[in-house]
Write a protein that binds this DNA or RNA. Structure first.
Lengths: 166, 166
DNA sequence: GTCGAGTATCTCGATGGCCGAGATTATCGA
DNA sequence: TCGATAATCTCGGCCATCGAGATACTCGAC
């Protein structure tokens, strides 16, 4: 069936947009179901993931930065960290250099949950990626990188519209 | 700099995973900031988007399906719809065939907000897509489609682990 | 070295979204 | 007509979240 060039592009564009939306919605569903399965709130799981990412990168996350990532006030972060510390998922670690700071590290229980969350996800991702060549994955990466950059700009624009004085 | 084939793949894989995570996090930030800018909760904006999608597809969404999408109990959905109806964003519409059902349609205020949310996003997306050929976008779409399918399977698996009796 | 401004975290009271069991209204098949 | 099922709504209770103020610490200026 014939389809003019513009139309093909327009359809593709819409499909990809739809893909991205479906991906985020499904990701939220997985988070919700997994959290409930482990007796956690959705926020708690997100926090656990953020803590893990911090350690992986060699820069443990602080409560302040955690609050920014999760869109939480300082009070909520304290309560959140208290919860996760009480259940043995993470622990607080005072910085020796700047003793105002607190580093969040995952404890045994947190590492266990994180692995259980990411391993099957990684396995599924690998299966998908096997069906693409290096060059194709390069294209995907280039696309996603640009999308993220664009989204981040937009995020900053919306935030600026909210607090014009900053 | 030389890099063996396996390593290149491993790096690419990790980068793309990271891209996807960054994308979802940034999308949440945008939703949060935009919602606050319009005096809405995050859930309310998500609901508005879901309602709009339903109308676009010609199948208006019902409170029940809205609750599934947002992971909300029936009681929360009623409160949510009440809020949005009171503020003039959406309205309830009884189905004439099956009068148990309620269709959710957006009212003037809802349409206005939805457009204001999506237009700048669409503009930014277009800019990114202009820098890719049709074939490249086709690759991206194929990748995302497979990822979504895989995520959905995983979601169902996690949900099944939670309620083994269903 | 000490004062003040700035930064990071925590405390605490109030609020409001959310859950979940039960009630209500409607459809459908026997 | 009746029972089973489905979709939505009501209501009481809970808990995560907000936000202003308190606390603890750092750092530069004088």
């Amino acid at each position: 069936m014939y389809r003019p060039r513009d139309t093909r592009r327009a359809v593709l564009s819409g499909e990809i947009t739809s893909d991205l939306r479906n991906y985020t919605v499904d990701a939220q569903h997985i988070g919700h179901a997994f959290a409930a399965l482990h007796g956690l709130g959705v926020t708690d799981l997100q926090a656990l993931i953020a803590v893990m990412h911090g350690e992986r990168r060699g820069e443990p996350i602080t409560p302040g930065r955690l609050g920014e990532q999760l869109n939480l006030s300082s009070g909520s972060v304290t309560a959140l960290v208290d919860r996760l510390e009480r259940t043995g998922h993470i622990r607080r670690d005072r910085d020796t250099a700047d003793r105002r700071k607190v580093f969040l590290r995952y404890a045994d229980e947190g590492a266990r949950v994180a692995v259980e969350f990411f391993r099957p996800l990684g396995a599924r991702t690998d299966v998908v990626m096997e069906r693409f060549t290096d060059d194709e994955l390069e294209v995907v990466h280039r696309f996603m990188r640009m999308m993220v950059e664009s989204m981040r700009d937009h995020r900053d624009a919306v935030r600026a519209a909210r607090n014009p004085a900053e």
